[in-house]
């Protein structure tokens, strides 16, 4: 089983995440902490920021993995995320009078549902209407951006957001505790989902069939698997995860909605998915790297690094993304049937 999981680029991603943790432990617990620049680079605050920045990327990448593993290219994650964010916000503003927790949970469910509907729309456009999947994804992005900005009520205010829940015992571990075990619920959920998606993809019937459908749909068809049904279901679940990423932004990270607030995170998620070689853990590592570059930007500004223009530091995440995706990690291999319409009697094979 190993070979599908431990591809080189996954290893690199996971290595990056481990490197950060080890450095953080060393820098914070040993005499290395006397060096200011090390504290800037690997302090608890940098790591906290990293995690917060990477959660939406992780969820977005998982969304992409579910769709693409079944053969549907999902370039519309950005749009599904934005739709989820906006839906979560509208739900929250309309339930401000409810008890906080029920209002938040309700809003998360709405974000999931709207993301799922966007995924379903993408599936219908690309399967039923055989639209080019890149175009269909673009339609999703434009639809979400246009609708959310048209319907956005500037006076609406969401009251309250998810707050941190320290896990007893674990959160007392030095360095790792405050970074990993003292977070709001959606963060835990996202990390849990990485494990769930991994296990589901590689150790369940559903996962085996999903991967077969994305690699060689005709082979799946010849053993009686309904190819397009798997694609509909996966793309819809993928949409839900992207919607959850949007919900995270509004209901846990920021607390409010802003127009275009996803700000390219959907695309960086795609990069994380590719960098992680379509594997959940690989994507987690890649998302951590991208999140870290965003954290760095923040930490360097806070530490008063002014001799580098701010704009250059802001470019960091994108530069890392480009380098990562341009084959620097060696060859990644997308699902073979990605982007192709499947019809049983189509073609002369």
């Amino acid at each position: 089983m190993g070979s599908t999981f431990w591809k080189r680029s996954s290893l690199i991603s996971i290595g990056i995440a481990l490197f950060l943790v080890v450095m953080a432990v060393l820098v914070n617990l040993t005499s290395l902490s006397q060096y200011t620049w090390l504290r800037v680079l690997f302090g608890v605050s940098a790591l906290n920021f990293t995690l917060r920045a990477s959660i939406p990327l992780v969820l977005g990448a998982l969304s992409g993995i579910l769709c693409e593993r079944s053969g549907i290219i999902n370039i519309g994650i950005e749009g599904m995320m934005l739709a989820g964010a906006f839906a979560g916000f509208v739900a929250k503003t309309n339930t401000n009078h409810w008890p906080l927790m029920s209002s938040l949970i309700f809003s998360v469910l709405i974000a999931l549902a709207v993301g799922g509907l966007m995924g379903l729309l993408h599936a219908i456009l690309s399967i039923r209407f055989r639209m080019d999947q890149i175009i269909s994804g673009t339609v999703i992005i434009i639809l979400a951006a246009g609708t959310s900005s048209y319907l956005y009520d500037r006076d609406a205010i969401a009251q309250g957001k998810f707050s941190s829940v320290a896990i007893p015992g674990l959160s007392d571990i030095p360095v790792i505790g405050p970074v990993l075990f003292d977070n709001p619920p959606l963060t835990y959920l996202a990390l849990l989902l990485v494990v769930v998606v991994h296990v589901a993809l590689f150790y369940t019937r559903w996962g085996l069939r999903t991967r077969a459908v994305g690699e060689h749909p005709r082979a799946a068809d010849t053993v009686g698997i309904n190819v397009n049904r798997y694609r509909y279901v996966n793309t819809s679940i993928g949409g839900m995860l992207a919607g959850l990423a949007g919900g995270y932004l509004v209901l846990e990270a920021v607390g409010q909605f802003q127009e275009g607030m996803t700000a390219g995170r959907g695309f960086i998620s795609l990069a994380a998915m590719i960098f992680g070689n379509w594997n959940p853990f690989g994507a987690l590592g890649a998302a951590t790297l991208f999140g870290y570059t965003q954290a760095l930007q923040n930490e360097l500004l806070l530490a008063g690094v002014t001799n580098v223009p701010r704009q250059f530091i802001s470019m960091l995440p994108y530069i890392v993304t480009i380098v990562a995706v341009s084959g620097f990690v060696g060859r990644v291999r997308p699902p073979a049937a990605e982007g192709k319409v499947y019809e049983t009697e189509g073609g002369t094979e």
Partner: peptide, 26 residues
């Protein structure tokens, strides 16, 4: 034209569609 998924193992290919499953796991 063989209907096998190249990146999967023999077991996975053979049982695909008629999987043997134990408590939800393959």
């Amino acid at each position: 034209h063989f209907q096998l998924v190249p990146v999967m193992t023999v077991v996975d290919n053979v049982m695909l569609g008629s999987e043997s499953v134990r408590c939800a796991f393959l």
